[in-house]
């Protein structure tokens, strides 16, 4: 089914909704439709019930974290320095706020077509990480939205039972976010991934600092040799 026609059909059915086609450059050709949070439920109901669409199976719901970026650029400015106009170079950092995105994959059991991909984004990753829940439209989103709430921290307004799904209730972090730092609870990691390596090395030096003095001497004499070679392994 053509996404363009779906888009125009939805725009006709849900007045005021803002839809945007998001192209997908990969050979899979699964382009997606970005919907705005305010009209999300109406759009979803239309997708499910409109006789030509009938996307009655919401198969997959998932979250994606897009952390904010800091870009630094040099800008030339004219300024008054010591009473004269001069051209000065300044570093200016711009911070784009990140967002959390939720993706829904819809199929139609009745018409046997699909998938169509819906995307919604939050305004930022902290206080305004709210999105409307589509669980009232498709029950299948219930557990998956809970999982996204747990692991990404998106709050779904209108979800009947929004609790953590996988982690325990006392847990405060959202581990699937890209900037999550897990507890330092392993002693040595044989996998040669850069991040893991860095943590293993850091752990080693911390352990060395805690050792009694003679052991430290022993260890430190080999300090350089003790380090795993970065990027080795694979």
């Amino acid at each position: 089914m053509n996404l363009e026609t779906i888009k125009s059909e939805l725009e006709a059915a849900v007045p005021g909704c803002r839809l945007e086609l998001v192209a997908n450059p990969s050979p899979s050709g699964q382009h997606s439709l970005r919907i705005d949070a305010a009209h999300a439920v109406a759009v979803a109901v239309c997708l499910r019930d409109a006789p030509g669409l009938r996307f009655d199976l919401c198969s997959n719901v998932t979250g994606i974290d897009w952390p904010g970026k800091q870009t630094t650029e040099k800008v030339k400015l004219r300024k008054l320095v010591d009473g004269t106009q001069q051209e000065v170079e300044e570093l200016r950092t711009t911070t784009t706020p990140g967002s959390l995105e939720v993706v829904y994959h819809l199929f139609s059991i009745e018409k046997k077509h699909g998938p169509i991909v819906l995307r919604m984004s939050t305004q930022d990753r902290d206080a305004n990480a709210h999105l409307p829940s589509l669980t009232p439209v498709w029950r299948s989103a219930e557990l998956q939205e809970r999982e996204i709430f747990d692991l990404f921290g998106v709050v779904f307004d209108g979800h009947p039972d929004l609790r953590r799904l996988l982690m325990w209730d006392e847990f405060v972090d959202h581990p699937m976010r890209r900037d999550y730092v897990g507890p330092d609870d392993y002693e040595y990691e044989p996998t040669a991934h850069d991040e893991v390596l860095r943590r293993a090395n850091q752990h080693l030096s911390e352990a060395a600092a805690k050792l009694p003095s003679e052991a430290v001497g022993n260890q430190q004499s080999e300090t350089d040799g003790n380090r795993l070679s970065e990027g080795g392994g694979r």
Binding site: E187, Y188, L204, A207, E222, R227, S229
Partner: peptide, 12 residues
């Protein structure tokens, strides 16, 4: 916690 000594060659 085990004490790990890692040499450059990767054997530990």
């Amino acid at each position: 916690a085990p004490l790990v000594q890692i040499s450059q060659t990767g054997t530990s």
